[in-house]
Nucleic acid binder design. Structure first.
Lengths: 137, 137
DNA sequence: TTGGTTTTGGTACTTTAGTATGACTCCCAA
DNA sequence: TTGGGAGTCATACTAAAGTACCAAAACCAA
C-alpha cells in the first residue's frame, strides 16, 4: 500500500515537472517541443515496463491454487495437509510427527491420496498435483 | 494489470482536467498541447507494459535453469538426467528402462544425487533442486 | 599413454513406502 | 437417532528405495 502511494506520487510529480517544462519551453522557446515529447514518451515507457514487472512478480509469488480440483478429486482437508508435506520432501514418519498422529495414519492418507490422484508413487503424486494446480508450483 | 492501466489512465486524465481548470483562470494557454502530451504519455505507458509482457513471456517459456548450480554441486550429465526423471515421478525401474541401463545403475546415480543435494529422500531432492533452480519449477 | 572422472553394473543389506484389511471414534446431516 | 464420511490406528505383508562396497569399462584431458 505504501509502495503504491509512493509510485503514484512519483508519477504525478513527474507529470507535473514535465508539464512545467513544456510550459516553460513554450514561453521561452529554449527547449524544443519535440524533445519534451520524446522525454515524456521515454519516461512513461519506462514506467510502464517497471509497473508491469512489479505486478507480474507478485502474480508469480501468489500461488494460484485451484481448490475446485481438490474438491472434485474428493481430497479431504487432512489428506491435503499430508499432500503438502509430501511435496515438501518429508517422510511418512516426519509427517506423522509434524501432524501429531501415528505413521499408520499417514500411510492411510497417502494411500488414499495416491488413489485419488491416480498415482503409483508419491513423486508422481507431486507431479500430478502440480499439474492440477492444487499445489503451489 | 488491466486495472492498473485503467487507474493510471484515469488519473492522468483527471490531472489534465485539473490543469486545464486551473489554467483557465490564469492564461488562456494551449489546451490541445497538453492533451497531446497526456495521450502520448498514456500510449507509451501502455506500449511499455505490452513490450515487457511479451519479453517476459519468452523468458518464461525457456526454463531459467541455473546451470552454474549444477556444476558447483558436481552433478554430472547422467545424474542430472536421472534427477529430471525423478522429478517427473518415475520409479528407479522406469528410469532404468527409459535410459537403457540397469536399475543398479540408477540406484547408484540416485544415491550420488542425494549426497550432492544433501537430501534424504528423492522427494526432498526434488524440492532442493527446484529451490536451486536446477529443475524447471 | 597415464590418471582421474564418469558411467556402468553387481551383491547384500536396511529402511521407507505402499497395500490390504479391519476396527474404533467423532461429527454431521437426513 | 442413525447412517456415512472423516480421521484415527494397528497388523501383516509386498514392493520400492536407499546404503555400502566393490569393480570394470569408457572417456577425456594432460
Amino acid at each position: 500500500m505504501k509502495k503504491t502511494i509512493f509510485v503514484f506520487s512519483s508519477l504525478i510529480i513527474a507529470l507535473l515537472v514535465l508539464f512545467q517544462l513544456s510550459k516553460y519551453s513554450y514561453v521561452s522557446g529554449d527547449i524544443s517541443l519535440e524533445i519534451i515529447i520524446a522525454i515524456i514518451a521515454i519516461v512513461f515507457f519506462v514506467i510502464g515496463v517497471y509497473i508491469n514487472k512489479k505486478t507480474l512478480r507478485k502474480e508469480k509469488l501468489s500461488s494460484p491454487i485451484n481448490s475446485k480440483n481438490i474438491e472434485q478429486l474428493g481430497i479431504s482437508k487432512r489428506e491435503y495437509e499430508v499432500l503438502v508435506q509430501i511435496s515438501n520432501g518429508l517422510s511418512n514418519k516426519e509427517i506423522a510427527e509434524k501432524l501429531f498422529v501415528s505413521e499408520s495414519t499417514i500411510k492411510t492418507h497417502v494411500s488414499n491420496l495416491l488413489l485419488k490422484l491416480d498415482a503409483k508413487r508419491r513423486t508422481q503424486a507431486i507431479q500430478k498435483a502440480k499439474d492440477l494446480h492444487i499445489l503451489a508450483i
